[in-house]
């Protein structure tokens, strides 16, 4: 059970940070080549996922540990996102497609 919570927290922090980055025009362009970010864009989902990772770390081993674990996990996710964007932004294209495919106004 705790392995699932841990993986869930890790994945939601990573995808959450990636989506928050994609919500910025500069990174959206680097990943998709398109100038216009889908509106309202992946920002809200990014925040929801980052918040989900907080919830999962609390469920994993309580607020006392989560208060340390979540900020560090999120920080690692920020670094990972920045590294992907710097080295090979194309890796985030599948994620960006989820937003490209939908007509503006949904999600």
């Amino acid at each position: 059970m705790s392995a699932f919570l841990f993986l869930g927290a890790l994945l939601s922090a990573l995808t959450g940070c990636a989506l928050l980055a994609l919500s910025q025009a500069r990174h959206w362009q680097a990943v998709t080549g398109s100038l216009s970010v889908a509106r309202p864009g992946p920002r809200r989902s990014g925040y929801v996922l980052v918040a989900t990772s907080l919830l999962l770390t609390v469920l994993l081993d309580g607020a006392g540990f989560a208060a340390l674990f979540w900020p560090l996990l999120s920080g690692a996710a920020v670094l990972a996102t920045a590294a992907v964007l710097a080295i090979s932004p194309g890796l985030l294209r599948p994620l960006a497609r989820l937003w490209e495919a939908r007509p503006p106004g949904r999600r």
Binding site: A21, Q24, H27, V78, T81, A82, L85
Partner: peptide, 22 residues
């Protein structure tokens, strides 16, 4: 605006500052 920004291929001063901020 520069939360996820790291430009290692830019000139050294810029890359250093990016890494510092990041």
């Amino acid at each position: 605006a520069e939360f996820f920004v790291f430009r290692p291929k830019r000139h050294a001063r810029r890359a250093t500052l990016d890494l510092h901020n990041l």
